[in-house]
Amino acid sequence: MSETPLLKVSGVSKFYGSRIGCQDVSFDLWPGEVLAIVGESGSGKTTLLNCLSTRLMPSAGSVEYRMRDGNFRDLYHMSEAERRFLMRTDWGFVHQNPADGLRMTVSAGANVGERLMAVGDRHYGKIRETATDWLGRVEISADRIDDQPRAFSGGMRQRLQIARNLVTGPRLVFMDEPTGGLDVSVQARLLDLVRGLVNDLGLSAIVVTHDLAVARLLSHRMMVMKDGHVIEQGLTDRVLDDPREPYTQLLVSSILQV
């Protein structure tokens, strides 16, 4: 891992009136690192993810991102144009429900190709070639390239969403419960795929999940959230094998019973 972090988060808080969304969250994310944010629903993990990815403006705090030129920029002080550009080039966002991240009425090929066209690719043949290649990498057969995601199964849609996000070679990917809506057998296959891609591409990722098995399989490091606060963080194996906080112990024991 390199000497400088990719993302520096300090003191991020989000309040809804007097209700706490998340409070005073700070951490660094390193290149190639996968961070899992775990907690029950309502713990503030999705609010935090949305703040980090600038889909939501926090009430306080700052997030600095190391741009490709090596300079850090405060995300909340960037213009909307810059942020949207970052989102469709250097970042990815994988939604729990693939329909939120895909265009359901255009073909799989166009779904993957859209980001390329958005950054100026103007060669149909090459765009299609790249799309075919990416469909292969997410295990979607090339003869489905002209089909719409409407005709795809849940697992295929999620894999298509991942391909659509990774085609521009982003350095940071946000994932919100990426296996949330899938059957257990489909989940395992998807997790394998994601782990392989993250390793191969050296991606950094922030994964929100309520499922400790997902955290175990994908992440290097994890943060446990409760009532908007980070109550414990550390290397994933350490947190899961030797949880220090009573709440984390409860979470871990409840999954082990399954």
């Binding site: 166009a110 190709g113 958005a118 299609r128």
Partner: peptide
């Protein structure tokens, strides 16, 4: 228009050629 996000326009043309 303000952000010059015209990728979608080419998506339409891509779909035309694909189909």
């Amino acid at each position: 228009h303000a952000l010059e996000e015209y990728g979608l326009m080419h998506v339409k043309l891509y779909e035309d050629i694909a189909h």
